[in-house]
Design a binder for these strands. Structure first.
Lengths: 228, 228
DNA sequence: GTTGCGCCTTGACTTAAGTCAAACTTCAAT
DNA sequence: ATTGAAGTTTGACTTAAGTCAAGGCGCAAC
């Protein structure tokens, strides 16, 4: 598959003309990262941004004593590192591949040149950044205003909605990663999952979780209910 | 002072030509909010964004049981509500005036039309959103990776740098607000301030704080030190 | 002044969640 | 199949920070 059609298939670039897509294709570089490889570390000089073609990437920060907070786990077609392109200078968090991950890389200079000539592209990026902001706002809300059971409930509901409103979905992250995403630790996560099972809110299979009581989880997520 | 010169003085619009500024002036509306008045509540339909001309505004969320997390406290020339303009639909948090606050209001439709014709403006907005993202990332890091003393230390250092590297600065927020900004409660804040005083890291006056040991605070903020 | 209302502080207590340590499960690699 | 490393669970314990309740401070309004 040639670069231009790959690019045309990326949601971020929806609505761009074939001509615009081929301009993007001209500046993009294909790169491959293997599991565990880092794209960049927090504080690195930012020279461009990435779009995932397949695989999985985590965006995270580490505390000095080693605790990890995962900001996002991103997959096919998700862009990352884009904020650093416009705010300049340094990546504010680190990015690491969780699997074999081919990406497209767009160098800052060339990409900004393109934007300067193309308001459609600019608007697409503005929408993207706004969405990111919204997601981060939700993360802050979760961390600060909810306790761990509430965060977990919200996360489960989100996953469930994502997978076509099925109430069973497969875990595509380890529980360690899930804990780091929820701002907690594996032990706590494990205990709370158990409490949810005890209260018949969910059921766990091998690598999967089934939601038994969506309403109950929603109440938990909104703070209207507590686990026994 | 006429609208065009007001706009030309706003950092967000730095680098725009006089012509561009007067186009902005043409779509901006001046509005006045008094202390305690809300601009919008979380979830409200978003119809535009604001720039503060004077006064003070807090951006915040409330948990169902009434706890408040303040995201930002904004002042003269700071824009807010801008993310909702591009992501569409709804404001993700609430905004309230903490003082008499005159603002400029830019309606979504007209502003987006302007951007569509003006890549310079688009780039300015991209930079703004990226900065916001960066600040929110730091907030997440603080909430999730630091304990309250560390967050407080980071906050104090930030305020101090802001006021021209003086080591004494005046509190322009109440301690209640400060607590909500740090993701904690007034009682906890009070106790930690006392511990910092005990350890001769800071000294408090009436409505002011003096930093005595910048290095010590920095160690605290970075998690290399603990309060006794 | 003095009244009253927010703001701030303090103390005693509770609790959610983290730490540490050990054991068990999975699964991939030899 | 065996090993080993990583992921996961469980239990006992610790701790940071929240809750509740009371009292003090400061300032504005009468």
């Amino acid at each position: 598959m040639d670069m231009t059609s790959i690019i045309a298939a990326i949601p971020l670039f929806q609505g761009l003309s074939p001509d615009q897509c081929s301009k993007l294709a001209a500046i993009a570089a294909r790169k491959y990262y293997s599991k565990g490889q880092t794209f960049f570390l927090e504080g690195d000089e930012a020279d461009g941004f990435y779009i995932i073609l397949a695989g999985k990437v985590k965006i995270f920060k580490l505390s000095p004593d080693g605790k990890e907070q995962i900001f996002h786990i991103l997959e096919e077609h998700d862009p990352f590192g884009e904020a650093a392109v416009f705010a300049g200078s340094h990546y504010p968090a680190s990015a690491q591949a969780l699997a074999e991950t081919p990406v497209l890389f767009f160098p800052t200079r060339k990409f900004v040149d393109l934007i300067r000539r193309d308001p459609t592209l600019a608007l697409a990026m503005l929408a993207l950044l706004s969405m990111r902001l919204r997601k981060l706002t939700a993360l802050v809300e979760n961390l600060s205003l909810k306790e761990v059971p509430g965060r977990l409930a919200a996360y489960l509901l989100l996953q469930c909605d994502g997978s076509g409103a099925l109430s069973t979905f497969s875990l595509d992250v380890t529980k360690n990663q899930m804990a780091a995403l929820l701002g907690t630790i594996p032990e706590t996560l494990s205990r709370i999952l158990k409490r949810m099972i005890d209260e018949k809110l969910i059921k766990t299979g091998p690598r999967s979780i089934t939601i038994l009581d969506k309403r109950g989880l929603a109440d938990l997520a909104e703070g209207n209910r507590k686990l026994g």
